[in-house]
Amino acid sequence: MYYTVEPGEAEEEFARAGTARIITKFLTSRRPGPLCVPKEVGFGGSPHTPIVLPSWLSEEDVNYYVTKFDQKGFTGGLNYYRAMDLTWELTAPWTGLQIKVPVKFIVGDEDVTYTTPGIKEYIHGGGFKRNVPFLQELVVMEGVAHFLNQEKPEETSAHIYDFIQRF
């Protein structure tokens, strides 16, 4: 049995694990593919298993996020996933339209979205270029997950600056 996005269920699990553990797990996760959390394991995992912070993430950073999420909770973010069907319905009129502006796409090779089955084939197999015909450059940053602007801020900023300079 896996956790669902039913109202209250994930919030209860997050409260059980604690905000600091949830935030740290989110920021340091390197599991490829879509997020699936078995109920018997829980998202926080064992509270006795330490999570080592990578060099780009400090205790001060974690504490900042914990302070913010302790104020408002996780419901707002979780509601994004709860509304996914509605989002698809609302954006249906734009299905099949191309993005016709210059684009530089930057993703980490360990990003959960990039490692979701079928995504690499879509990006590198021509599907992405068909939908984004003005794709100027595709950058896959090695050893980087979902928070590339935090994990490699100088490199990410340089990529963005280089792209903007072209115009």
Rank of each mutant, 00 (worst) to 15 (best):
E9Q: 11
E11P: 09
E11R: 08
F14T: 06
F14P: 04
F14E: 08
F14A: 03
R16V: 01
A20Y: 00
A20L: 00
A20C: 06
R21I: 11
R21F: 12
I23M: 12
K25W: 06
F26Q: 06
S29A: 15
S29V: 00
R30K: 14
R30A: 13
R30I: 04
R30S: 10
P32H: 10
P32Q: 02
P32M: 12
P34K: 09
P34A: 14
P34G: 09
P34F: 09
L35S: 08
V37F: 10
P38R: 11
K39T: 03
K39F: 03
E40S: 14
E40L: 03
V41A: 12
G42Q: 11
G42L: 09
F43W: 02
G44E: 15
S46A: 04
P47A: 06
H48G: 13
H48C: 02
T49H: 12
T49Y: 12
P50A: 14
P50R: 13
L53G: 06
P54W: 03
S55P: 09
S58C: 05
S58G: 06
E59H: 07
E60C: 05
V62C: 13
N63L: 13
Y64R: 08
V66G: 07
V66H: 02
T67A: 08
K68H: 13
F69Y: 13
F69D: 04
Q71H: 03
K72L: 02
K72G: 08
G73D: 07
G73E: 11
F74R: 05
F74Y: 14
Y80D: 03
Y80V: 11
Y80E: 02
R82H: 05
A83T: 09
M84Y: 10
D85S: 01
T87V: 10
E89V: 10
L90F: 07
A92W: 02
A92C: 08
A92Q: 13
A92H: 01
P93K: 15
W94F: 14
G96V: 00
G96L: 10
L97C: 05
Q98I: 00
I99Q: 01
K100C: 09
V101C: 07
P102N: 04
V103H: 09
V103S: 08
V103F: 07
K104T: 15
K104S: 07
K104C: 13
G108M: 08
G108V: 15
G108E: 08
D109W: 07
D109F: 00
D111N: 03
V112T: 12
T113L: 14
T116E: 11
T116P: 02
P117T: 04
P117M: 01
P117R: 08
